[in-house]
Design a protein around this nucleic acid. Structure first.
Lengths: 137, 137
DNA sequence: TATTGTTATACTCTATAACTATA
DNA sequence: TATAGTTATAGAGTATAACAATA
C-alpha cells in the first residue's frame, strides 16, 4: 500500500507544480477543470472536492475575481448557482492539461500491456478504496 | 492517468479520515509517522513534506505542544534539531496504522497475482513520476 | 560565507455555526 | 421544514523574506 501512497503523492506533487506554474492552486485547478468539463452547481463542487459547501464560496470567489469562472442562475431552482468556465478559464485549463502531458509521458514509458493491466487493476481497486473512506471504519 | 489520480485521491481521503478520527491532520500524521520510523532533523521533514523549511516549525510546535514529539539537540552539528516521537506519539501512530488496516483490506480483495503485478508496475512508474515533478516541465 | 532553524506576514483551504432566500 | 448558498470565525498549511546561531 506504501507504493500506492507514493505514486498518488508523486502525481499530486506533479499536478500541484503544473497548476502553480499557471498561477493556480491545486484546488483552483481542480474546480476549473470540473467547470470546463461541464457547468455545475456550487453544491456539486463541494462534493467533488470532498469539503464543506461553505468553502466553495471563497474558492469560486477567487476564480471569478480573476475572470476564470462565472456564476449563472439555475434554470429551475432559483437557489442554485451554476459555475461556468469563461473563455479565459477554458484557456487556462487547456494550458494546464498541455503541461500535464509531460507527466503523462511517464505512463507511455510503460509497455502497452502493462498500461492496460495497471488500468484494469486500479479500476477494480477504486470502488473498494472509496467505500473504505465512506465507511468510517 | 485519471484512474491514478482517482485512486490516489481516494487513498488520501481514507488516510485523512483515519487521521482525523485520532485528532490528527494528514500532515501531522505524516510527520508523526516519519518520526516514529526514525528520529530526523527538521530539514529532512521539510523534504519529506515537500514544503518550505519554515513551515515545519509550526507543525512540530503543535505536535510538541500535545506531547507527541520532542525536539532533541543534534549530536554533532549544534544547529540541527532532531524530531523524536514520544511514547504517546508512538501510540497515536500505532492506532492510526491499526485503523488503516480496514483500508488496506481493499488490497486483500484483489487476487494475490494482481496484487503482485500492481506493486511491480507502480514500482516501475514511481521514479518516472517523481522525476516529472522535479523537472519543472 | 553557507546552512539550520525561527519569526513575521499574508494567502489559501478547511470546518462549524448562524444566516438569507428560496423551495 | 428542508435545501442552496453565504457570511463570520478560527485553525492549519503554505511561501517569502529577514533574522540569529552555528558551521
Amino acid at each position: 500500500m506504501d507504493v500506492i501512497a507514493a505514486v498518488g503523492g508523486a502525481y499530486y506533487q506533479d499536478f500541484a507544480a503544473v497548476a502553480a506554474r499557471h498561477g493556480l492552486t491545486p484546488v483552483q485547478a481542480k474546480v476549473l477543470g470540473a467547470a470546463v468539463r461541464a457547468p455545475l452547481p456550487m453544491r456539486a463542487l463541494a462534493e467533488a472536492l470532498v469539503c464543506d459547501a461553505s468553502n466553495v464560496t471563497g474558492i469560486v470567489d477567487r476564480l471569478e475575481a480573476r475572470g476564470l469562472v462565472r456564476r449563472e442562475a439555475g434554470p429551475q431552482d432559483r437557489r442554485v448557482k451554476i459555475v461556468t468556465a469563461t473563455d479565459e478559464g477554458r484557456e487556462a485549463i487547456l494550458a494546464v492539461r498541455e503541461d500535464m502531458k509531460s507527466v503523462h509521458d511517464a505512463l507511455d514509458r510503460l509497455d502497452a500491456s502493462e498500461r492496460d493491466t495497471l488500468h484494469e487493476i486500479l479500476q477494480k481497486l477504486l470502488p473498494e478504496l472509496s467505500q473504505a473512506s465512506a465507511q468510517g471504519h
